[in-house]
Design a protein around this nucleic acid. Sequence first.
DNA 1: ATTTTTGCAAATCATTTGCATATAT
DNA 2: ATATATGCAAATGATTTGCAAAAAT
Lengths: 149, 149
Amino acid sequence: MTAQIASPLITALEGSGVRLTGPRRAIAEMISTRTGHFTAADLVGAAKARHPGIGRATIFRSLELLSSLGVVERLDLPNGDHAYVGCEPSHHHHVVCSSCGASSDFDDADLSTVVEGVGARTGYRIDSHRLELFGICPTCAAATTEAST
Amino acid sequence: MTAQIASPLITALEGSGVRLTGPRRAIAEMISTRTGHFTAADLVGAAKARHPGIGRATIFRSLELLSSLGVVERLDLPNGDHAYVGCEPSHHHHVVCSSCGASSDFDDADLSTVVEGVGARTGYRIDSHRLELFGICPTCAAATTEAST
DNA sequence: ATTTTTGCAAATCATTTGCATATAT
DNA sequence: ATATATGCAAATGATTTGCAAAAAT
């Protein structure tokens, strides 16, 4: 009975009918050890070090697969870069730390009021939305304060 | 006294200290004739037809300039493409039509409550946010209904 | 045994850059 | 006159694709 902690991603893969391959396990594990967001290039780099033999294409393909399963989400950073974060498959949004890349999820409740209001005012039938918040996480804020003391 | 309608973009350029060049006028005009969002590639194509001689690089540079002036905004479409829309320079967000690309602006008021709430709950100091709504505009909705009759 | 995945290398696509020339001020 | 902008072509960077070989069912 070994620890299964690191694997909501693996669970998601298991439940989806795709094959649970070595590369996919390795990628899932590399993602689940990350605290914050990461780019495809980050993962390619990590793979080169920790799991040589995994190709660039496989990483892109896995990222797409995991996104489609809803356990990884693609973010568009303010600078235009694409990044990813591991997350719960339910609908929600992210706050991401501009300093360390950490991210938290938050849910939808209050936002849906806003979304409905906009729909009513503009006449659009709103199908989907995306909200991303950027700021400084408590840890980084503390570190900054300290440094300036 | 000729119509100046097409030129909030030009006004913005004038007020900003940059030089009002031929290519910039042409690009501003091409943008202001668009109803919905457009990609850099769209503009490159339009320029090739209507203003040959304007280079790709100039288009990208102008888009960046206009974005920095706040009269054009870059969107990240749900499919990952980058697009732009012309807009008012005040802070606001967009609803974009998945069918025709039209977009409307809406302001911030209700959203700021949500943003503050998230900041309070997560402990993040929120610096910026981005909200994009996607759906079907009234015009396209009407067209669809008609077609199915 | 059969189907899905993979790795590789090459292809594609978007965006950026260097630099000599042209243009707005 | 002088600083800023432009066009071009080449450079860069990210992501995708074709395909034969490898691995999972």
